[in-house]
Every structure is written in C-alpha cells, then in structure tokens.
Amino acid sequence: MLAVRQLAYKINDLEAAAEAHHRQFGSGPFFVLRHVVLASSQHRGVERPFDHSSAYGQWGDMMVELVVQHNPDPSALHDMFPHGSRAEGLHHAALFVDDLAAAIARFESEGAPLAQLSVTAGGTAFAFVDTRASLGHMLELYEPTEQLTGFYDFVAAAAQGWDGRDLLRELG
C-alpha cells in the first residue's frame, strides 16, 4: 500500500500560511527552509531552475508542507498554479516508494506522466507525477532514505507536547 505521508499546499506567503494553518488546525511547529538548494531539476524533461521555499509542520499524524516558488520558470507547481497567479491550494500528496524509477514508470503506464524530477543538494531525489486527471492534484514520490525519514521523525517529534510558541523555526 502506498500511504500518504504528506499533504502540500502552494501558498503565497509562508509566514501567513503557517499562522493560518496553525490557527485553523493546530498544526505546527513549522520548520522553514528558504530557497531549497537543488543539484538538478527537470520539468517535463528540460533542466530548469526550481527556486522554492517550504515550511514543514505536523498536522495530526501527517506532515504538511507549505511551498512557494520564487522564480517564474515552468515547474510542476506552475503546472497547477501558473506564475503570477495568486491562487493557493492543494498541490500534491507525498508517498514513499521502494524504487523511484519503477514507481515513475508505473504511474506513466497508468496515464500519469512525470512532470518534474529534482535532486536536492544532499542527494534526495523527488518526483512529481501528474495525477491531476484522476486525483485533481500531483503526487510526489520519493524513496524513504534514512535522511528523509529522519526529517519526518524530527518534525513529528517537535509537535509532541508543543505549547504553540515559536511557530516558525528557520532551518539551514
């Protein structure tokens, strides 16, 4: 079974979105990574910059990501929310997969093409497959490396017994 590990929302302002999400749902604290450094990023097979910042928080048993893209270049985010649009909303659900290449191939064979494949500076690869036709949003796929699952555990642990103070915490 491919369980959802994270829900991610395209937003326009990290701080305002984190405060609103916390106020509405009690989520947090949020760990902010600004201008995520990528080793590579291909959108629809073309190498393109993907300058984005994200805030990661805990929402019950699930991680929530709030993401904003800074550059105007095509991306999986801009596939759903074109550059210049002030619209916000659900962009993707994230899944852990055992084999990223095999999962991409499987989704492509089922009519969900690869929209974007990126690799962080730390070596974590993540892929957005375009499931808008069937789900109304993208799926993000990545292998559950020790680094990645450790980050998920770190965010979840910070929420345990959290008193609601210090909502935004800068990373990096």
Rank of each mutant, 00 (worst) to 15 (best):
A16W: 11
E19D: 13
I104L: 12
E108I: 00
F128N: 08
V37P: 00
H70R: 08
E88G: 12
V97I: 03
M63A: 06
L38Q: 13
G60A: 00
A94I: 01
D99H: 07
D13S: 09
G123P: 12
S118C: 15
Q24P: 00
H70Q: 14
P49Y: 14
W59F: 08
T124R: 07
R132V: 15
G45M: 02
G57T: 05
H83E: 09
D73S: 14
E88R: 12
T131M: 09
A8C: 15
Q69W: 12
H35W: 12
T120Y: 10
M62Y: 03
S85P: 09
F81H: 06
L33P: 00
S41R: 07
L100G: 00
P29M: 06
G28H: 02
A93L: 11
P113D: 10
G45H: 00
D79I: 03
L38S: 10
G122W: 03
D130T: 08
G60I: 03
M62T: 09
H52M: 09
R44Y: 13
R86K: 13
A55K: 06
V64G: 03
R23Y: 03
V129K: 02
I11K: 09
L33H: 06
Q24W: 04
M63P: 00
L114S: 10
E108T: 10
Q24E: 14
E108P: 07
P82E: 11
A127Q: 03
H137E: 05
L66V: 07
A39S: 14
T124Q: 13
V97Y: 01
V119S: 14
F30T: 02
L90W: 02
N12Q: 14
V37F: 02
D61G: 09
M138A: 06
V119Y: 10
S54R: 01
A16I: 07
A76R: 01
A105L: 03
L114M: 00
V32C: 05
L135D: 11
A94T: 05
G28L: 02
Q116F: 06
D130W: 09
R44P: 04
L77S: 05
L14C: 13
I11G: 04
H92L: 04
L135R: 14
L100H: 10
A55R: 04
L66E: 01
S118D: 08
G123C: 11
L135W: 14
G45T: 02
G26R: 07
L117V: 07
S41H: 11
Q69Y: 08
I104H: 05
E108Y: 04
A17F: 10
N71G: 11
V46S: 12
H137D: 04
D73H: 15
